[in-house]
Amino acid sequence: MSDLYRFIHAEKANYPVTLLCRVLHVARSSYYAWREGKAARRRRQAADDALAHEITVLHLASRCTCGVPRIHAELRRLGRRVNRKRIARVMRERDIRGVNRRKYRSLTRPGKKAKLAPDLIGSDFHAERPGIKLVGDITYLPTAEGRLYLACRLDLATREVVGYAMADHHRAELVVDALDMAHGSGATCSPAA
């Protein structure tokens, strides 16, 4: 629509505005509203440019980590009352982005026919003597070369790691290696526990 208004504005020296609006099927009041809004659009663009400068300064001060919510909070703390959606629009137009945290990805997904192991500990994490209750876990450590998976076995009586294994995968053999190390260190678990 603004192309039509620009055309009318350019040709109004040659033809009357009424005729141009009638031929182009545009309301004359709409043309005049567009013409009067030109200054307002310029002022709004200047205000957006000033806001973009403030956002850029705050973004660089945060080492390019802050996104819209933090920038909005910081501007409010500094006394600037700006709508959060306007900040989002200005940042989007100027391609200013914060750092997104990676979403959590579960590594253990039981299959459709997988059977859950019975809970032998029963949420009782106390053991009278070493070697009675062993628990374990698998976690990953992000490294420059990729993920490194760590499986460990913990004795609940002494709270010390009695076996561990590391690999670049999280298959069953990783857990078996941790169990083998725990067995080699003398930590055994009775079948009743």
Rank of each mutant, 00 (worst) to 15 (best):
L141M: 14
K133C: 03
G98Y: 03
S2A: 15
S2P: 05
Y140T: 13
E93N: 12
Y15L: 08
P130H: 05
A47E: 15
H9E: 15
G37I: 03
R22S: 05
K133E: 01
C66A: 15
F7C: 09
L51K: 06
Y31T: 03
V90N: 11
A33W: 00
G98K: 04
R101C: 06
V57H: 09
R105M: 08
A50E: 10
D124G: 05
G184W: 01
A114K: 09
G131N: 09
R159F: 03
L24D: 02
V68L: 05
A172E: 03
L150N: 13
V135W: 02
L19W: 04
L156V: 04
G184D: 14
A73I: 01
Y149S: 14
R43D: 13
L20T: 04
L116N: 10
L107S: 08
L174F: 05
R81D: 15
I121C: 07
L120R: 15
S106M: 05
E36Y: 08
P110L: 02
L75Y: 09
S123A: 12
A167W: 06
D137G: 06
P110M: 01
L51W: 02
G79A: 12
A61L: 10
R147Y: 13
R101T: 04
Y164L: 15
L107I: 11
P142W: 04
S190T: 08
V175W: 00
H169T: 15
Y164I: 10
R28K: 10
A73V: 06
E93H: 04
K133F: 00
E74A: 15
D124T: 08
V135N: 02
D3R: 13
A187N: 02
K113D: 14
L20A: 03
P69W: 01
R44E: 12
V68N: 05
H25E: 11
R171P: 12
R109Y: 01
R101E: 03
G163L: 11
E54V: 08
R89A: 11
S106Y: 09
A182C: 02
R97W: 00
R147M: 15
A114Y: 05
V162L: 08
S106Q: 10
Y32T: 02
Y15S: 06
A46H: 11
D124R: 08
P142Q: 07
C189L: 04
V99N: 02
